[in-house]
Design a binder for these strands. Structure first.
Lengths: 167, 167
DNA sequence: TCTTGACTTGGAGTCGACTCCAAGTTATAG
DNA sequence: CTATAACTTGGAGTCGACTCCAAGTCAAGA
């Protein structure tokens, strides 16, 4: 029962949906720790590593840049995050991020549904949070209070109830 | 009432949260149609254009590449998509995409919550769909039946219930 | 023994999406 | 009249995330 089943990089790629090149790339940039090697130098992966790669893939889907994943991967391999208060903060803040992403996405779904149903509602897709959690290059760090502005997607030639509340 | 309120690019940037440079870039790649100009050549934006930019920003949040947005923007300015069957298809397929994105995200939220609560559940973050709707570069187009595999995030040194169902 | 295939490495190239720059124009303020 | 600010343009540069390549190793099969 020590036979923990191992995978080649090819299998791992297939298993995770991440290409071999990309897996090697992740190792190169140390997002993944150096994989074990066989005598011939070939990488060996086990379930554990595959989970980690899947976590990366999953976080990627949330739009998280690779660099930001590092602490998450730390939490991943490490046991309990409660011991690392700043990680807890990170988790919380990313959670907020995702929640607002979800609502953004939900609004796009609504938009699409509305379009598909040929209805003409209006929908708001602005979200209260700024998405510069990971970006600090913008000069204008104003709160940009857009949250109340109506989003009348697919603006039908500026037709819909559009109160010009000049911000 | 013909005074429809116009915006400079700067105001538009502030209004939409998209930088001036980026707005110009969108125009350059014709994602936005050429903005009106004043006599002095300065761009003029109106509410309608701002909505369009917001739509782009919103779609961006769903991870959609700019190129893929074009048909959406067509739907946006155009009235009714039901006349364009392929657009309807696009909308539907992107809707599916987003729905699965949402569930991915929800799983990450669950993951985080679980981590925050110090519990040790397992969670699955693989999704049934392939995300190569926009990518056709991968050679291996196998269905990769991962949907049942347990995702034991933060794989605690390969400890959790891990049935090695060699795929 | 030679070839094939699966891997290794380092490094170069690509691509999307900006982001920045230099040079020029125009409007207003001092 | 000049300087400042707000814009314009075309183009170059950057950055993240791959993606591809060439050269090499190694094991197994014809």
């Amino acid at each position: 029962m020590k036979e923990e089943q191992t995978f080649t990089i090819k299998q791992t790629a297939k298993e995770t949906g991440i290409s071999e090149d990309t897996i090697r790339y992740y190792e190169k940039i140390a997002l993944l720790s150096r994989a074990e090697r066989k005598d011939n130098g070939h990488r060996v992966y086990r379930q554990e590593n595959i989970e980690t790669i899947r976590l990366i893939s999953c976080l990627k889907k949330t739009g998280m840049p690779l660099e930001e994943m590092r602490p998450f991967l730390a939490v991943s391999t490490d046991a309990d995050p409660a011991e690392y208060p700043e990680l807890v903060e990170l988790l919380r803040s990313h959670r907020e991020n995702i929640v607002s992403q979800i609502s953004s996405l939900q609004q796009v779904v609504d938009f699409i549904d509305m379009k598909l149903e040929k209805g003409r509602y209006r929908r708001d897709c602005s979200d209260e949070i700024q998405d510069d959690v990971s970006e600090n290059r913008m000069e204008e760090s104003k709160p940009k209070s857009v949250s109340t502005v109506q989003m009348s997607y697919f603006s039908v030639s500026a037709g819909v109830g559009k109160s010009p509340n000049s911000v």
